[in-house]
């Protein structure tokens, strides 16, 4: 299985997934005009991974801004993780937020709410 690597652009974040280690990273700002166009390949890659392996996933989200469509896509990513976790897959989510960015912290809390996943909020300077 190939790894995924999407470079950061003005309105899309950097996304990387390494199927060897199960390390997933999504970092930057996300407000593409067509969120599905951008996140489609991310869903595909993650779905392939959980179908083919039983390896762990360690996901890091480090976002400073995202629009509503991107939020929906993030929910869908968490859905994939949750589905994997429900069949015994090991998933850990790390939600990074800048120390004084209460809004990003709160959005992490919103996403974590009612989610049966290990979900950590991690401040950075």
């Amino acid at each position: 299985m190939q790894s995924l690597s999407l470079a950061r652009s003005v309105d899309t974040p950097e996304v990387a997934f390494d199927p060897e280690s199960g390390n997933f990273r999504l970092e930057g700002e996300s407000y593409p005009e067509n969120a599905l166009d951008f996140y489609g390949s991310v869903f595909e890659c993650l779905n392939q991974y959980i179908e083919r392996t039983q390896g762990p996933i360690e996901a890091h989200f480090k976002l400073s801004y995202f629009n509503s469509s991107s939020s929906k896509c993030l929910l869908d990513i968490f859905d994939i993780f949750e589905a994997y976790s429900s069949v015994g897959g090991k998933v850990a989510v790390h939600w990074h937020y800048q120390k004084d960015d209460e809004d990003i912290k709160e959005s992490g809390e919103d996403f974590a709410d009612d989610l049966s996943l290990e979900f950590q909020l991690i401040p950075f300077d």
Partner: peptide
């Protein structure tokens, strides 16, 4: 419904951030 509530809350946060 749960997702809608989550997305509304997240969207409100993003708007607050932009306004600030």
């Amino acid at each position: 419904l749960k997702n809608t509530i989550k997305l509304t809350s997240v969207g409100d946060g993003a708007q607050r951030k932009l306004v600030r």
